Simulated assay, not measured.
Amino acid sequence: MERGLKANTSKKRTYSLFRQGCMYYQALPNMPEARLRPLIERFAQLVCEQLVFREAFGLL
Rank of each mutant, 00 (worst) to 15 (best):
L17E: 08
A56V: 02
E2D: 05
R37H: 03
R37L: 03
A44L: 13
A27K: 10
G4V: 05
P32I: 05
G21V: 05
E2T: 07
E2L: 04
P29H: 03
F43Y: 14
L17Y: 04
E49R: 14
R37M: 06
K12Q: 04
A34W: 04
M1R: 07
L60F: 15
C48A: 09
L28S: 00
F53P: 04
R35S: 08
C48V: 01
F53M: 08
P32V: 03
R35C: 02
S16C: 00
R42T: 07
K11D: 01
Y15Q: 09
R3A: 12
V52A: 09
P32R: 03
K6Y: 09
Q26N: 07
C22G: 11
R13C: 08
I40R: 11
Y25N: 02
Y25E: 00
G4R: 11
F43Q: 02
E33C: 06
M1P: 11
R37K: 07
A27R: 10
P32G: 03
T9P: 00
L17S: 10
P38T: 02
Q20F: 06
T14I: 03
L46M: 13
T9W: 14
A27I: 05
V52H: 14
Y24E: 03
G21W: 12
G4A: 07
S16V: 02
L59W: 15
R37T: 06
L39P: 13
T14V: 09
A7G: 08
R42K: 12
R37I: 10
G58M: 00
P29Y: 09
V47Q: 12
F57M: 10
L46Y: 15
S16A: 05
V52Y: 12
Y15L: 10
A34V: 04
C48P: 08
L46R: 15
M1G: 12
E33T: 13
N30D: 12
R3F: 14
T14M: 10
Y25G: 01
M23C: 06
Q20L: 05
E55K: 14
V52T: 05
R19K: 13
A44P: 09
Y24A: 01
C48R: 15
E33H: 11
K6V: 06
A56D: 00
G4N: 06
Y25M: 07
R13E: 07
K11R: 10
R35F: 07
G58C: 02
Q50K: 14
F43L: 09
L59V: 11
V52Q: 10
R42D: 06
M1T: 05
Q50M: 14
E2A: 03
E41M: 11
Y24V: 12
V52K: 14
L59A: 09
A7E: 08
L60G: 04
S10P: 03
I40A: 09
R19Q: 10
Y25W: 15
P38L: 00
L17D: 11
L5M: 07
R13P: 02
A27G: 03
R19T: 14
Q26D: 09
E33K: 13
K11H: 08
R3E: 13
L59M: 08
